[in-house]
Design a binder for these strands. Sequence first.
DNA 1: CTGAAAGCGCTTACAG
DNA 2: CTGAAAGCGCTTACAG
Lengths: 335, 335
Amino acid sequence: MAVTIKDIANELSISPSTVSRALNDHPNISKDTKTLVVKTAKDMKYQANFIAAGLRTKRSNSIGILVPQITSNFFASAIDGIQQIVSDHGYFTIICQSNENYHDEVDQIKSLLSCKVEGVILSISSDTKNYEHLETLQAYDTPFVFFDRIAPGFETPTVEANDFKGAFQAVEHLIKRGRKKIGHLGGPGLLGISKSRYEGYLEALKTYDYEINENSVVFTKSEDDHGPIIEKMFENPKTRPDALFTFSDELAVEAILKIKKLGLNVPRDVSVVGFGNSNLCEIVEPSLTSVTHEPIEMGVAAAELLFKVIEKKHIPPHQMHIKYDSKVIIRDSSR
Amino acid sequence: MAVTIKDIANELSISPSTVSRALNDHPNISKDTKTLVVKTAKDMKYQANFIAAGLRTKRSNSIGILVPQITSNFFASAIDGIQQIVSDHGYFTIICQSNENYHDEVDQIKSLLSCKVEGVILSISSDTKNYEHLETLQAYDTPFVFFDRIAPGFETPTVEANDFKGAFQAVEHLIKRGRKKIGHLGGPGLLGISKSRYEGYLEALKTYDYEINENSVVFTKSEDDHGPIIEKMFENPKTRPDALFTFSDELAVEAILKIKKLGLNVPRDVSVVGFGNSNLCEIVEPSLTSVTHEPIEMGVAAAELLFKVIEKKHIPPHQMHIKYDSKVIIRDSSR
DNA sequence: CTGAAAGCGCTTACAG
DNA sequence: CTGAAAGCGCTTACAG
């Protein structure tokens, strides 16, 4: 049987209240009692019961993380960043995945609510068009922070990349390299970040008086087979793009492999720029030019914001919505 | 304020006991009452409080996962597999990282204990040589299952790859390709899986009467810079290996990039075989031959085993220690 | 089939 | 500085 506060109290013939105070650094407690209790607790291998404490104090000491998929390098690193801050605060995390699926997302939110997490860091799935489940979160006074992928219409803090600007810079880089016909392999259409990156792409083309050709733009879905899509984009030698800006590094890598298979050379025939600056960039050949996207820093920032809300600290308006500027890391795929 | 069972009871002028029974599908409850309670709960947006229920029943409905790092593709996929089974059981997971650090591992085990998880799936860090913290787990009757990386001397279920055999097959493949001098870039020396893969390598060499040259073997640490190590292995044209079997795909990729930088050709001058058959294999050029290592299946198996222990089901001895056989997936790096 | 009561392990306002 | 008491939200043995 696990040792409880009562066992320690009995052992020392004092009250459980005193044991609790000694263990929790309560101000009104004599040094001697405290030392004695702490030592006895250790000897008896006492492990605090967070669950019982949480029930009493109505603070579970846990926060929820809900991401589309944990196997994505970006989200895995983000969780890493979040957990650093969370454990500094003595909290633990409950991590859920939506698998890019709306219904899973709704279920997971419910489950987090039942776990009585004190807050949630949330990246919406690419399948989510309805935000009732987030209103439920609000109805239960559970604070949340949007991370990277943001649902419109909520007055909660957000941490995201400056996707528009990052995309703009990526395309500007391709233009300055002398590329004439720049295609875009976009992300899932419902995602705000897909739109922002697409708009950044458009804006760069406009700024430099490039013709906008809708045939050079395709939005992908995560469950799609992208091979045929990429092939179609490059099959006609007359109309094919000489450069490609993709929504993600994963897509860029797929594109590079496919383009090479089609007998074209990267970057000579087609330059490619990805988004994310992930570990894949240095592995693929040619190495991939990419827009930075800092998951760890963003995760840290999101967790810090969430704790400010939990602790009801004032957040100055300009800190409510953090955007990380990106830069283009130039590698061989666009050199 | 959150809605409780008591609020529903008041609303319907019945007792909280009855509400609880209705919500939990208790056998002795009239259909009408049940329907009414379930409907009212929904209308009132009741969310069960797992924490309170857990305190009362002494079942937290949670299990802990402790892995070296969540950003590793292998462990991220394993967590994915584990979570499938865990949510089927109506449980949730608390995921912790040791960062390949013994002290973090000890802290995380304590934290899981305080969360009163009902079981732990555990992959020990490459820094762990002392297993007292695992004895603590046992002392608290918290069942655990070793996943992939196993500490010796515990009578708990294990799920692992057949590392010895996988390594043997990898090296045998290189031998059958006519390679004469096969090096090994090993993993962290403390890990059992490093030893097993090394021993499989040795055994293959012995079986085929190859000379064993200790200069062709290096054990790495995760925090090391492997560049110089690889460079040293290949700098002397007379003594350099014409094939390399590595502990992981990550190391294989590093090796390929470095070997190419040294002006050597893969696979002509040096064949390379990795371990893990991860997503990197198809991305690197040349594509990487690798030994399969099925994280999702292994995660599923570990979770199923853990629930059998939690539910005190009998586990036939031959199911206590599951070993996944591997095969070699041949790609261009050894063709 | 339903209710009153006890209690899971803790914390904390109140009293001394 | 310490203790007795109440209570967090639930479940369940007991009684009817």
